[in-house]
Protein backbone atom coordinates (compact mmCIF):
# COMPACT_ATOMS: atom_id res chain seq x y z
CA UNK A 1 0.00 0.00 0.00
CA UNK A 2 2.98 2.28 0.25
CA UNK A 3 2.98 5.03 -2.29
CA UNK A 4 6.69 5.58 -1.96
CA UNK A 5 8.37 5.98 -5.30
CA UNK A 6 10.32 3.04 -6.56
CA UNK A 7 13.62 4.75 -6.09
CA UNK A 8 13.19 4.70 -2.35
CA UNK A 9 14.83 1.63 -0.95
CA UNK A 10 12.23 -0.62 0.60
CA UNK A 11 12.71 -3.70 2.65
CA UNK A 12 11.70 -6.72 0.60
CA UNK A 13 8.22 -8.07 1.26
CA UNK A 14 8.60 -11.04 3.57
CA UNK A 15 6.22 -13.83 2.64
CA UNK A 16 5.17 -16.73 4.82
CA UNK A 17 3.31 -19.55 3.04
CA UNK A 18 0.87 -21.67 5.03
CA UNK A 19 -0.69 -24.72 3.39
CA UNK A 20 -0.79 -28.37 4.37
CA UNK A 21 0.07 -29.39 0.83
CA UNK A 22 3.72 -29.34 -0.04
CA UNK A 23 2.86 -28.92 -3.68
CA UNK A 24 0.70 -25.87 -3.09
CA UNK A 25 3.42 -24.35 -0.94
CA UNK A 26 6.03 -24.79 -3.63
CA UNK A 27 3.58 -23.66 -6.27
CA UNK A 28 3.02 -20.35 -4.49
CA UNK A 29 6.73 -19.95 -3.87
CA UNK A 30 7.53 -20.51 -7.53
CA UNK A 31 4.66 -18.58 -9.06
CA UNK A 32 5.24 -15.24 -7.43
CA UNK A 33 7.09 -12.93 -9.78
CA UNK A 34 8.17 -10.07 -7.56
CA UNK A 35 11.84 -9.12 -7.42
CA UNK A 36 11.57 -7.75 -3.93
CA UNK A 37 9.58 -10.56 -2.39
CA UNK A 38 11.31 -13.00 -0.17
CA UNK A 39 9.79 -16.23 1.06
CA UNK A 40 10.80 -16.36 4.70
CA UNK A 41 9.07 -19.58 5.60
CA UNK A 42 6.54 -22.28 4.77
CA UNK A 43 4.26 -23.93 7.28
CA UNK A 44 2.00 -26.96 7.03
CA UNK A 45 -0.40 -26.10 9.84
CA UNK A 46 -1.49 -23.31 12.13
CA UNK A 47 0.96 -24.08 14.92
CA UNK A 48 3.93 -24.05 12.61
CA UNK A 49 2.64 -20.87 11.01
CA UNK A 50 2.44 -19.01 14.32
CA UNK A 51 5.85 -20.21 15.39
CA UNK A 52 7.36 -19.14 12.07
CA UNK A 53 5.55 -15.80 12.17
CA UNK A 54 7.15 -15.10 15.56
CA UNK A 55 10.59 -15.90 14.24
CA UNK A 56 10.50 -14.46 10.72
CA UNK A 57 8.29 -11.35 11.09
CA UNK A 58 6.50 -11.69 7.75
CA UNK A 59 4.68 -8.87 5.94
CA UNK A 60 2.40 -11.17 4.01
CA UNK A 61 1.00 -14.59 4.80
CA UNK A 62 -0.82 -16.87 2.37
CA UNK A 63 -3.18 -19.04 4.36
CA UNK A 64 -5.00 -22.27 3.63
CA UNK A 65 -8.20 -22.83 5.61
CA UNK A 66 -8.49 -26.58 5.93
CA UNK A 67 -5.40 -27.84 7.70
CA UNK A 68 -4.79 -30.50 10.30
CA UNK A 69 -4.21 -29.58 13.96
CA UNK A 70 -4.90 -25.87 13.81
CA UNK A 71 -7.06 -24.70 10.94
CA UNK A 72 -6.75 -21.43 9.03
CA UNK A 73 -9.52 -19.56 10.86
CA UNK A 74 -7.94 -20.10 14.27
CA UNK A 75 -4.50 -19.36 12.87
CA UNK A 76 -5.66 -16.06 11.35
CA UNK A 77 -7.19 -15.04 14.66
CA UNK A 78 -3.99 -15.63 16.56
CA UNK A 79 -1.76 -14.27 13.82
CA UNK A 80 -3.58 -10.93 13.74
CA UNK A 81 -3.27 -10.71 17.51
CA UNK A 82 0.44 -11.51 17.25
CA UNK A 83 1.24 -9.25 14.29
CA UNK A 84 -1.51 -6.72 13.66
CA UNK A 85 0.24 -5.23 10.64
CA UNK A 86 0.61 -8.49 8.77
CA UNK A 87 -1.43 -8.94 5.60
CA UNK A 88 -3.17 -12.24 5.09
CA UNK A 89 -4.29 -13.71 1.80
CA UNK A 90 -6.51 -16.77 2.18
CA UNK A 91 -5.89 -19.28 -0.59
CA UNK A 92 -8.47 -22.03 -0.33
CA UNK A 93 -10.75 -24.23 -2.35
CA UNK A 94 -13.13 -24.48 0.56
CA UNK A 95 -15.15 -21.52 -0.54
CA UNK A 96 -18.39 -21.71 1.34
CA UNK A 97 -19.37 -18.15 1.99
CA UNK A 98 -19.91 -18.27 5.73
CA UNK A 99 -16.47 -19.74 6.42
CA UNK A 100 -14.85 -17.39 3.93
CA UNK A 101 -16.54 -14.36 5.46
CA UNK A 102 -15.52 -15.56 8.89
CA UNK A 103 -11.90 -15.78 7.75
CA UNK A 104 -12.13 -12.18 6.58
CA UNK A 105 -13.80 -11.17 9.82
CA UNK A 106 -10.97 -12.64 11.78
CA UNK A 107 -8.63 -10.38 9.88
CA UNK A 108 -7.75 -11.86 6.50
CA UNK A 109 -7.29 -9.17 3.87
CA UNK A 110 -8.27 -11.09 0.79
CA UNK A 111 -9.51 -14.35 -0.60
CA UNK A 112 -8.19 -16.32 -3.56
CA UNK A 113 -9.93 -19.45 -4.85
CA UNK A 114 -8.05 -22.65 -5.57
CA UNK A 115 -6.97 -23.53 -8.14
CA UNK A 116 -5.45 -20.23 -9.16
CA UNK A 117 -3.37 -19.06 -12.06
CA UNK A 118 0.01 -17.40 -11.65
CA UNK A 119 -1.59 -14.21 -12.80
CA UNK A 120 -4.34 -14.36 -10.19
CA UNK A 121 -1.81 -15.00 -7.46
CA UNK A 122 0.45 -12.15 -8.55
CA UNK A 123 -2.45 -9.76 -8.88
CA UNK A 124 -3.64 -10.63 -5.42
CA UNK A 125 -0.18 -10.13 -3.91
CA UNK A 126 0.22 -6.86 -5.77
CA UNK A 127 -3.17 -5.70 -4.50
CA UNK A 128 -2.13 -6.41 -0.94
CA UNK A 129 1.49 -5.32 -0.91
CA UNK A 130 2.17 -2.73 -3.62
Amino acid sequence: MSNAPDTVARRPVRLLIVDDSNIVRRRIERSQQFDDLQVVGTAANGFEALELARRTDPDLVTMDLTMPQMDGIECITQLVRLKPAVRILVISALADKATAVEAMERGANGFLDKPFTDRQLNEAIAELMY
Partner: peptide, 21 residues
Amino acid sequence: RDLVGEVANTISGNARRDFGH
Protein backbone atom coordinates in the same frame (compact mmCIF):
# COMPACT_ATOMS: atom_id res chain seq x y z
CA ARG B 1 0.30 -38.96 -2.46
CA ASP B 2 0.32 -35.26 -1.84
CA LEU B 3 -0.45 -34.54 -5.47
CA VAL B 4 -3.47 -36.85 -5.87
CA GLY B 5 -4.80 -35.58 -2.56
CA GLU B 6 -4.51 -32.01 -3.73
CA VAL B 7 -6.19 -32.77 -7.04
CA ALA B 8 -9.09 -34.47 -5.27
CA ASN B 9 -9.36 -31.69 -2.71
CA THR B 10 -9.36 -28.96 -5.30
CA ILE B 11 -11.94 -30.67 -7.46
CA SER B 12 -14.31 -31.12 -4.57
CA GLY B 13 -13.68 -27.67 -3.20
CA ASN B 14 -14.75 -26.20 -6.51
CA ALA B 15 -17.80 -28.39 -6.45
CA ARG B 16 -18.69 -27.13 -3.05
CA ARG B 17 -18.40 -23.57 -4.23
CA ASP B 18 -20.70 -24.34 -7.16
CA PHE B 19 -23.25 -26.30 -5.19
CA GLY B 20 -23.40 -24.32 -2.01
CA HIS B 21 -22.85 -24.66 1.64
